[in-house]
Simulated scan of single mutants.
Amino acid sequence: MSLRVTFLGTSGAIPTTDRNPSSIFLRRSGEAFLFDVGEGTQRQMMRFGTGFDVDAVFLTHAHGDHVLGLPGLIQTWGFNGRSEPLVIYTPEGTRTSVVELIHAIGHEPDFPVSVEEVSPGSTIRDREEYTIRTIAVDHDAPAVGYALVEADRKGRFDRERAEELGVPAGPLFSRLHEGESVELEDGTVVDPDQVVGPSRPGRTVVYTGDTRPTHTVESAAEDADLLIHDATFADDEAGRARETRHSTAREAARLASNAGVKQLVLTHVSPRYAGNTGLLLREARDAFDGEIVLAEDGRTIEVPYPESA
């Protein structure tokens, strides 16, 4: 099952000629989500071919560079005949601001739009195959991060062993794989643990939004397949990072290393590094031996299942 992340906006605070403000599109099988909706997000969706079939929007906080794309996107959905409801999740204390933003030009959405406040440490989407949870972060505004965590998958079915035990190919294979014991024609009972291996882990994707490095993020990102972390500054602006409640690339990488993350993506890059983003990568690589990517607008990452799966 495909799990794909496309970066629509990767700049910090203001856009540049190469980077839009923050927005991430995530598609998992038939569902699609937006995490943050910076100015110009809808054009980026067209430019990079993500599609517009978004099921829900997840806002990390209500600073302009993370939300100003909402009114235009909602209006475009209306022009395109959308009728499906949209839910927007936003941190506690920001619902009123988000609702006012949606109606800022007196436009009433042509389809149902609900805005729900979420608190850190909550499960806000609980599906059989995955959950989406909020993470406590540390920013200079009410803010949360998000973690999409897939459930464990069934173990591998050992067809050869099943046939050795006399199980005929067909419906009995499926019943065993579903965890049901089966009785053969000769009265022999075959149990699932005889032909089905241990459960296999799903995938975890964590997005911090804007934040200082925190233990809550580190805990949520433990063994994550993909961590998308604020990396606004290089070491030369470490003091500024502390003042504005952002992270340096090195701090993001150190957290990823402590959490055992498989792949780290650095995003929310300050425009001051527009001509020298390699500095962020070099400093991050000093602190993390795993795979590191510096996010760029339009880049798509396919998240594979863990190798042991």
Rank of each mutant, 00 (worst) to 15 (best):
D223L: 13
R4A: 08
G278Q: 08
E307V: 12
V113A: 04
A224Q: 11
T214R: 06
G106V: 05
R175T: 07
T134D: 12
L8H: 12
T76L: 13
A284H: 15
R299P: 10
A136C: 02
M1A: 05
A259N: 04
D286S: 14
E163N: 13
D126C: 10
V67L: 07
P192F: 06
F48C: 00
L86G: 02
G69H: 13
L68V: 02
I14A: 03
R159E: 15
Q263G: 08
D140Y: 10
F7G: 02
K154Y: 14
E291L: 11
A221S: 07
D55K: 02
A249G: 13
S219E: 15
L86Q: 09
D235L: 13
V196A: 09
A241G: 00
D126S: 05
T6D: 01
T300G: 07
A32C: 10
L34E: 00
P71V: 02
A221E: 02
L26M: 12
R272K: 12
V206D: 07
R82I: 00
T277V: 13
S114R: 08
R156I: 14
N276D: 14
T123A: 07
S11Y: 11
E307N: 10
G239Q: 10
D236I: 04
G78A: 03
Q194K: 09
L255T: 08
A287C: 11
L34A: 05
V189N: 03
P85F: 06
T211S: 15
I228H: 06
R203I: 01
G78N: 01
M1L: 14
F157M: 09
E31K: 14
V217Y: 13
T10L: 00
V137E: 07
G155H: 02
W77I: 01
L148W: 10
Q44C: 09
V137T: 12
R200D: 11
V196K: 08
D193H: 15
D158I: 01
S22E: 04
T6I: 01
L227R: 05
V182Y: 06
